[in-house]
Design a binder for these strands. Structure first.
Lengths: 346, 346
DNA sequence: TTAAAATAGTATAACGTTTACCTAAAAAAA
DNA sequence: TTTTTTTAGGTAAACGTTATACTATTTTAA
């Protein structure tokens, strides 16, 4: 059916080896035959069969993107799609496909990985954090199968992962608030045990210490990652004898609750109170006021993960380390420069 | 490196044909050799090379999911990811991969399709609405390449597409509002020219007509798909001599603006005014009040698209028609039963 | 002028499967 | 018993490409 290298060879009256060499820019073919063969290719509308080529090269041409995607997880991880897009951008230029594989849980993920590795379905794998588990990682490491874990695994392992630096996120939030002139900073976090939350708080605290700023103990609140918890914690803050003039909220939902609490207490954001949060969800730009946010550069994570993985694939001996990306500050209206307020109005 | 069918054959002391037949459940192999060979497979940890098999079968094992994904489009189309997941669910069970291909514009999409078809990269293609264009569709049709367009193309074509029924969406919104006991219904839409908007409005209007309900002309407003527009249109409505007791907002952003306007006018939603909108974005459950929504069953679209495409691939003669899915009503707090209010409180 | 090296091209074996065609034994039918 | 049919399995070609090893010609170097 489809036209193959044989058809081209026959039609151009050369051997298939010659055609192949032209396809792959190998030396020792004259300019004239090259041109002739290329014309024939065009005339026959020949396209080399990528699959056959991959088969011969013993590569699959696939890099699997593996993630846990229960129903309706999009909100829980809108970042997943963006990471996929970032990775896809890099991979497309390198003649790889990026099969998306959504599994139902980490057990399913583990089974899938075994199948992928066993059946040669892929040359490498990007494992989204939601799909990691110790057995999965151990399996990949043991089989020396090229992979990158997106999101630092919560267990020690000699694998290669990429993540954002949550400590720096905490620092950046604080740094920007200070720059704005806010001085009494509160922190509303998720569960105390959560690692991400802990790291962000550490960043915040270390910035405060380095800059010899004092932290009021009762300005640090823990709760859950919900709107309701944000509301309650903010209320608590507002009922204490001294008020903060800015608050760092661990996520959009908490921020949403905090905004409502401030509204209830007739505090204006950003004038009476600055508010900054993490992760740029669609919500953050749509609520009132639009939120200033420390965001993960999620495309960059996808791009980097993919490009490092490609390096690994092309050079299996390469020992690549895990690495972190830096967050981005996105300034919106929930913070404002407290000192130069009047200036900007003149 | 990897263990192949040859290794199994040698180790089991049979021919590779026998091993292959066992793999593919072909007849005329005795139970005893079957068992023996299977044991050897297990012992050697043999996995058939899917790529080689596909190559032999002249199929690629890929179904491409093609979509336009500029940077940060996630919010503009969070549905894209959900459709991808839905499709993936179906495809995974059929031993296909679902390479995700994000392109920058429809021109890029067209080039990609030509490459995919030419190079045999895929056996079929799911084209997300964002990637369609007349040349692309014409190309697929002309080459008789299995495909489904997700989202009805805005031009006439003998292709096969899947979409939700926006007229029914409009009807459902109205039907539910009536059921709740709201009687004076307003409609805040996007641009008058927008097809989706027009269809939803048509559904609304036709429901009103069939049920002999009157529509006030000045209860129908057009604007843009933004929060600001929603706010303005709602203000307009609230300044008119007669007030609606419920409003249908074309999308989440408009609804957001409308909610603010109602707040400003000290109207309580859902008590003084019911509000219903379309498409279940994360926003809708997080704002105050959480919004009642007519949602596209986006997983179902993905699943159906994939399963129809698989049918097409397996039976090229099959002439499948385009088809529509029905929307879902998701009841939240921006509407309430006006008649039985007291009942529920007793 | 002759030998060596570079150029231009071909023939063919792989890659790991599947399958059409073959053989031989066993079972069934005559 | 003989013939036919069924069962069990093997041989080898094919899928479309790439690469190694080869030949033959031309160019360069000695």
């Amino acid at each position: 059916m489809a036209v193959t290298i044989k058809d081209v060879a026959r039609e151009a009256d050369v051997s298939i080896a010659t055609v192949s060499k032209i396809l792959n820019n190998k030396p020792y073919i004259s300019e004239s035959t090259t041109q002739h063969v290329k014309e024939v290719m065009k005339r026959l509308n020949y396209h080399p069969n990528a699959q056959a080529s991959n088969f011969k090269y013993k590569r699959s041409g696939n890099i699997v993107f593996l993630a846990v995607t229960e129903l309706h997880t999009a909100f829980h991880n809108p970042h997943m799609f963006e990471i996929l897009c970032g990775a896809q951008n890099v991979i497309r230029n390198k003649d790889y496909n990026l099969p998306f594989m959504g599994v139902s849980d980490t057990q399913d993920a583990y089974e899938s990985v075994k199948k992928i590795v066993g059946c040669n379905t892929a040359d490498g794998i990007l494992v989204h954090g939601s799909a990691t588990s110790r057995p999965l990682v151990d399996f990949l490491v043991k089989n020396n199968f090229p992979h990158i874990i997106i999101g630092r695994p919560p267990f020690a392992s000699s694998t290669c992962w990429i993540d954002t630096n949550n400590r720096v996120s905490g620092q950046m939030a604080m740094e920007y608030l200070e720059e704005c002139g806010y001085t009494q900073i509160a922190f509303i976090g998720g569960p105390k045990s959560d690692e991400i939350s802990r790291h962000r708080l550490q960043g915040f605290v270390s910035y405060m210490n380095i800059n010899r700023l004092t932290i009021q103990d009762d300005f640090i609140k823990y709760g859950t990652y919900t709107k309701e918890s944000g509301f309650l914690m903010m209320e608590e803050l507002l009922c204490q004898p001294t008020l903060p003039d800015a608050v760092i909220c661990e996520n959009n939902q908490i921020a949403m609750g905090a905004v409502h609490a401030a509204e209830k207490h007739q505090l204006s954001i950003p004038k009476d109170m600055g508010l900054i949060t993490f992760d740029d969800y669609p919500l953050s730009q749509l609520i009132d006021p639009p939120l200033t946010v420390i965001d993960i550069d999620v495309h960059e994570i996808g791009r980097q993960a993919a490009s490092i993985l490609l390096q690994k694939i092309n050079n299996p001996a390469l020992q690549v380390q895990s690495f972190v990306t830096l967050p981005n500050l996105i300034i919106r209206s929930s913070t404002q420069n407290q000192n130069k307020m009047s200036h900007s109005l003149i």
